[in-house]
Computed example of a mutant assay.
Amino acid sequence: MLPIGSFFFGKLEDQYGYRRFIILGSVLHVLSVFLSAWSTKIWHFFITQGLMLGMSNGILFPILCALPAQWFRRRKAFATGIVIAGSSFGGGMNALIIRALLSHMSLRGVYLVQSGVEVVILGISFVLMKEREYPQRAEAEAPFNVEKQQISPDAKIEGSEDVESPSVERVQPEVLPRTKWLNSSLFRDSVFWSLEISLTIAVFGHLVPFLFLPLFIRSKLPGISSSLCTLPITIANISAFIGRIIVGLTADNFGPANTLFISLFISGITQVIIWNLIGNFGANESSTYGMIMFFAILYGFWGGCFVSLLTPVGAQLFGSDQPANLSGLLVISGFPGYFAGPTLAGTILSCSNQNWHIVSLYAGGVQICGAVIFLWARFKRMPRIFVRF
């Protein structure tokens, strides 16, 4: 639901302003967690944690990408990286906190506590967020077209008694233009298709380590405890928090497009080589678990960086007049991968008789393929190699 919501609401947010959609997304987010406390059947959770929570994230995500781009020019990628990194830090800490709470209260109590905490956090965020008004929206909402003012060429300096009153031509109030969901010029640009196809393919391998790593650990270390089995996922989220900030700073210095290619390529290489080699040399359990933690740290650092680079790369390639709309259009490219990527990995694992080598080659291979496809967009806009872009 996040890609669909981002595409649908991103355009509306650019046209009508962010604050009303921040309220809508926040209310829907809190309701999804609160109603989960009263869910008793699987289909209840599909509605609350799937439909409602996914749609609320789809409403809020384009805003989180677009707001830093409004206020920062030189450090746009760094600012966006810090904002998006919050989701990684929150995901890692939330897993630890919920695990601790479940030892002292019921699942319903945990959901109620979580919804109360989110009311406070989202309320503070709403107060602190401030949107920067764009000239095109201000003109569209203005009651009169001020550009129609015509000042007499004989008028003297302002403040003089002889200044003539300007002749102002009043026109009918302008209304907001009808929402145009798709920019046809983008679909005629091969750079857009290079970026879109690159993200579509790369996302197929993005979630595979995060979802399959506990199962992989169980297969390599059957006697491991549940807490140690899920710890690498938490570590990967914390590493992603650090990675998105550092990679954002790197993008400001070396260029967003260059950094996006590097992040996708290293993410793929990490899976193809490091994940593929874990436990293949007769190592003991401690060494195997250490390699798993090393893989979680390295993949967590690079694996999710492309998400925080979408807005800076989109602004560099296509301009930054509608950041939320562009972010939504790029996010929806990941819909097939988010929907089918992990399912395809599970099918490969089952059909290959639990062969993890094929799974890692699949997940890393599609990310490398996505990085290579993006090179068309990179060199179409900037043919030179060793240049900040």
Rank of each mutant, 00 (worst) to 15 (best):
F212N: 04
R75S: 05
S352Q: 08
F212I: 03
A202S: 13
G268L: 05
R178V: 14
T343D: 03
W275M: 15
Y362N: 07
S115W: 07
A95P: 00
M52S: 13
G116E: 05
G364T: 03
I292N: 00
S165W: 14
L96F: 07
I63D: 08
I201L: 13
V247K: 03
S6N: 07
I348V: 08
T343E: 08
G223C: 03
I292Y: 06
A236N: 01
I217W: 10
S87A: 09
P166H: 12
K11N: 11
L186C: 01
F210C: 01
W356E: 01
F295E: 04
L211F: 14
I235F: 12
T200I: 10
C65G: 04
V387C: 06
P135Q: 05
V163R: 14
A85H: 02
K76T: 05
E133P: 01
T347S: 11
R218S: 07
G90N: 04
F210Y: 10
A37E: 04
F374E: 03
S225Q: 09
S194H: 05
R108V: 02
L310H: 02
L330I: 09
Q367V: 01
L102Q: 13
D162H: 15
L195S: 10
N94D: 12
M105K: 06
S320E: 12
F294T: 11
Y134F: 12
V163H: 12
I245R: 00
P153L: 08
T347Q: 07
F7Y: 14
P342K: 01
I266A: 09
C351H: 15
I98N: 07
V272Q: 06
L228I: 01
L60D: 03
F306N: 01
C305Y: 05
M1P: 03
G10E: 06
V30F: 12
F265R: 06
F386G: 04
G92A: 02
F72R: 02
N258L: 09
N355Y: 13
F7D: 02
F126Y: 09
F204A: 07
M129P: 00
C305I: 01
A240P: 01
S26T: 07
A142P: 06
S103W: 14
F144H: 07
